[in-house]
């Protein structure tokens, strides 16, 4: 029996759009026909992580978390709910952004699970972030563009910020942008001080989030000053403190993320 792919995402009890990127990435991968089965699984929707393995036919499953960073969900919730036997975060031997994959037996079915690192920390994600920036910029932007990767950030998990900084570092090394910064919603340096941290006339802002929702559609546009009320919408580019700010949607919705998921599986083989 050929292998199964499970894309493990958060989902939502309140926001119907939360699962949409997960479905879209799964559909792109299904079209490629690489796997005998591709299944979405969720923490807040169904099939739940807890029951996804039993709906698969395959003896082997690759589970790729559609999460931004290593942390609570990838290290505790998903392995526990999948019932990965003998799981420990040490199995990934990760420095916080370098998890690849480790193999476990599931507790409720005879499936061998290759548990992969999250999509958000894969090297290839840097390219997706940069691509996201390129697609929103047009001829009006000059050569002098600053680029900002925005993460949630949380004092409770240092890996949350590490993933954002990691990609900002990668993109900086490419010399594609005049300046590259990692800014955060809930820790320093904060995205609401955008124009203090970035000195270029044009600034492209890419939120490193899995799906569009409150944070990317309401909080960040208001924090940056694209609008004083998200319900009124905002221009792209919008003018903030005399700069032109080009704001993209959540990077996780980009179709290229499907390729990053596949990269995760390739790394696990």
């Amino acid at each position: 029996m050929a292998d199964a792919l499970v894309i493990a995402a958060h989902g939502s009890h309140l926001n119907p759009g939360s699962s949409t990127p997960t479905y879209n990435h799964a559909d792109r991968i299904r079209e490629a026909g690489t796997f005998a089965e591709v299944r979405e699984a969720f923490w807040k929707e169904e099939p739940h992580f807890r029951e996804v393995l039993r709906v698969l036919d395959s003896d082997e499953a690759y589970v790729v978390p559609l999460f931004i960073s290593e942390g609570y969900f990838t290290e505790q919730v998903i392995p526990r709910e999948l019932r990965l036997q003998d799981w420990t975060p040490d199995a990934w031997a990760s420095d916080g952004v370098s998890a690849t994959a480790a193999t476990f037996q599931a507790g409720d079915v005879d499936t061998q699970v290759h548990y992969c690192g999250p999509v958000g920390t894969h090297d290839a994600m840097s390219q997706v972030i940069a691509h996201r920036a390129d697609t929103v910029l047009d001829d009006r932007a000059g050569d002098d563009v600053g680029m900002v990767v925005v993460g949630h950030g949380t004092e409770r998990n240092e890996n949350s910020a590490k993933a954002v900084q990691y990609h900002a570092d990668q993109i900086r090394q490419q010399d594609r942008f005049a300046q590259v910064e990692a800014l955060f919603m809930d820790e320093e340096p904060e995205v609401e001080d955008l124009t203090e941290h970035v000195h270029t006339k044009d600034i492209v802002v890419v939120p490193l989030f899995v799906a569009d929702g409150y944070h990317t559609q309401e909080d960040i546009p208001e924090d940056i000053g694209l609008t004083d009320d998200y319900r009124k919408g905002y221009d792209v580019p919008a003018t903030v403190d005399g700069r032109r700010v080009w704001y993209t949607g959540a990077v996780g919705t980009d179709p290229l993320v499907a390729d990053v998921i596949l990269e995760r599986v390739r790394d696990a083989k």
Binding site: E46, P47, H48, E51, V52, R54, V55
Partner: peptide
């Protein structure tokens, strides 16, 4: 059916 009612057939 499994997409409408996930895991109901298995359970």
């Amino acid at each position: 059916i499994d997409l409408f009612y996930p895991a109901t057939i298995a359970n």
